[in-house]
């Protein structure tokens, strides 16, 4: 029996698997259910400082190899978030990562001030959704300058609220020229770690019988097994350059996938689209497969595998 526990930005997780933002994650009880199914921690859906409407349906379509989504980050605002986080604390002791988002710079400041008093274990800043657009552009604040500004603002607001100890990770988009430079800029601006990657694209699926895109938003973020070679590569690149804490996310559906992501440099592994293939029970399945692989390969502590692939050049 290998030790699957990891410490990430000073927070202890029973295993490295965390529910990725955007999957389930609307309610405390659904996130607690994911933990019961075997997740080491959970990430909420992106929280806005105000009510935010999503896109009309269809919002998610899938095939054997990928999922394409443009849900549009619906959220009921901070009052609901406060209630759900408090409820999660009552029913579950696993780490809770609050993912926050905004349409303009001031939104990030406002929602950071709000979540600071909700006491999440970590804050994940979404600057990379490919499906919503405001003055920050698309993908949102993914320039070197804007990503650093968002990070500084969030850190500052947490500090003002006396919550400077809450670690901040920034979730990056792969749909940029140079993800490593953006990772550098947010780390220099005070981020404690990186989540890589958000969905790829956006992509499009056209229904030939209706001769029109299927998603109401026409385009959506690509996730699922098809994107795993990309996510592994970006995690590898960021780890190589920065050696920082990374939540590696993108296409993980098996224990081998999760270990691959850790060897690329991930300290935690985000799992999302795999829920579509295997249900929330996928967390327990992946953890068990990781354990079996470790036992078969004489690995005592899963954390010893973080960045392992960098040792073999």
């Amino acid at each position: 029996m290998a030790d699957l526990s990891v410490e990430f930005c000073g927070i202890k997780f029973k295993n490295p698997l965390v529910l990725a933002s955007g999957i389930l994650g609307v309610t405390a009880d659904s996130m607690a259910n994911v933990v019961r199914c075997g997740a080491g921690g959970v990430t909420s859906k992106s929280l806005w400082p105000y009510e935010h409407m999503g896109h009309p349906n269809p919002v998610i379509i899938t095939s054997e190899h990928w999922m394409l989504n443009a849900v549009g980050i619906p959220d009921a605002g901070p009052e609901k978030a406060r209630e759900e986080i408090a409820r999660f604390r009552e029913v579950c002791d696993a780490p809770f990562i609050a993912n926050i988002v905004g349409g303009v710079m001031d939104d990030y400041a406002q929602i950071a001030s709000e979540v600071a008093t909700m006491h999440p274990d970590m804050v994940e800043v979404n600057i990379s959704c490919p499906n919503v657009e405001d003055e920050l552009g698309k993908p949102m604040a993914c320039s070197i300058g804007k990503s650093a500004e968002v990070t500084r603002l969030v850190k500052e607001r947490l500090r003002e609220a006396g919550s400077e100890k809450i670690p901040v990770v920034v979730k990056l988009s792969p749909n940029v020229e140079d993800i490593v430079s953006i990772a550098s800029s947010v780390l220099d601006a005070g981020a404690d770690g990186i989540t890589a990657i958000n969905s790829v694209g956006p992509g499009m699926v056209i229904d030939i019988d209706f001769a029109r895109p299927v998603l109401a938003n026409k385009v959506g973020g690509l996730t699922g097994p098809a994107i795993k070679p990309l996510s592994v590569k970006y995690v590898y690149d960021i780890y190589k350059a920065k050696k920082c804490p990374i939540i590696g996310t993108g296409g993980v559906t098996t224990g081998r996938d999760a270990i691959e992501m850790m060897m690329a440099g991930a300290g935690l592994v985000g799992v999302g689209s795999a829920v579509w293939l295997h249900g929330p029970e996928v967390f327990g399945k992946i953890a068990e497969e990781m354990n079996e692989w470790c036992d078969a390969n004489g690995v005592k502590k899963i954390s010893s595998l973080i960045g392992k692939a960098h040792e073999n050049r």
């Binding site: 999957i23 609307v26 309610t27 259910n33 919002v59 998610i60 999922m67 579509w276």
Partner: peptide, 22 residues
């Protein structure tokens, strides 16, 4: 319900936390 197949989380019921579409 939005997606219909257990991803979006909108139809989860409190108590069990499971999606009603699944």
């Amino acid at each position: 319900m939005k997606c219909g197949f257990g991803i979006c989380g909108n139809c989860c019921v409190d108590g069990l936390g499971v999606p009603t579409c699944i």
